[in-house]
Amino acid sequence: MSKRTLPRLLQTPAVLLLLVWMLVPLGMTLYFSFIRYVLNSLRRPEWTTPSLSNWRGFGNYEFVLKSKDFILAIQNSLLIVCSILFLTVILGVLIAVLINRAFPGRGFVRVLLISPFFVMPAVNAVLWINMILDPVLGLQGIAVGGINDLVDGLRNAPLIGWFFSLWPELEPISFRATQTSALAVIIMVTWQWTPFAILIFMTSLQSEDQQQKEAAVLDGASAWSQFRFLTLPHLGRPIAIVVMIQAIFHLSLYAEIEIVSRGNGNKNLPYLIGEFANNNIGAASATGIFAVILANIVAIFLLRMIGKTLME
């Protein structure tokens, strides 16, 4: 046994645990995705036990691809993920630049800004959908009611009354409805993850080349062109990383979707898998494999970037 064998063996428990954790369930998913397997079937009881004799080939995949829910779930997953990415990156860059300057109470403002990130997803969803977005009892409902009352009162006012009588009565939005539940999820997740983007961009801004900036100022560069030609290019890599990490996390959003509308009008892939898994395990597994493929497309790029910095 060479001198280095024992120390190297110390990583085996970690590697083995992860290997089992990854291979066993994923292998089962792959197997189930190729057979007919349902939990309850009066007509075909033989399908209720997983067995190779129920081989279906790519039948489950075909079934999933042809189902309307799957296309909707993919569209909805992409809509949610892309909207969140767009909003968090823009807000993140702006706010990171905003607090990158010294001002009184900066540390405290940073603490305020980062806090949403540590709120557990279930609380985040319950808090927003009930206490803030509810059309009657939430702040939204109260605010809309308040504005309507105010406008109503002003209608009878002398001189300016005619102006307010042109105003329409505002209607509060129900965020649990089919058309709006995705919007509610986008709002709450953006609130939770913008702090993450801010934190990363802030870390990155601190390593920005100050001499270069001073030179730009001496050359008479405007604040805008400094931002455009120095800060933004400097943030290119962190932005790419924020986008990829968030994409991977948000592709598997679950608690928020469940709490807002139980998936009503707002299913994403994980939610659809959960629904299939109530009975049709074959379809749930095939959908799972699609989800893995989708996540891997992003993960490959991300891992490549991490790999470059890993050994520096």
Binding site: L18, W21, M22, V24, P25, L26, M28, T29, F32, I248, L251, S252, Y254, L269, P270, I273, G274, A277, I281, A284, S285, G288, I289, A291, V292, L294, A295, N296, V298, A299, L302, L303
Partner: peptide, 13 residues
């Protein structure tokens, strides 16, 4: 990379 696998994919297993 194991961290990047979607959990839902292995829900039933």
């Amino acid at each position: 990379s194991t961290k990047m696998l979607p959990a839902a994919a292995v829900l039933y297993p």
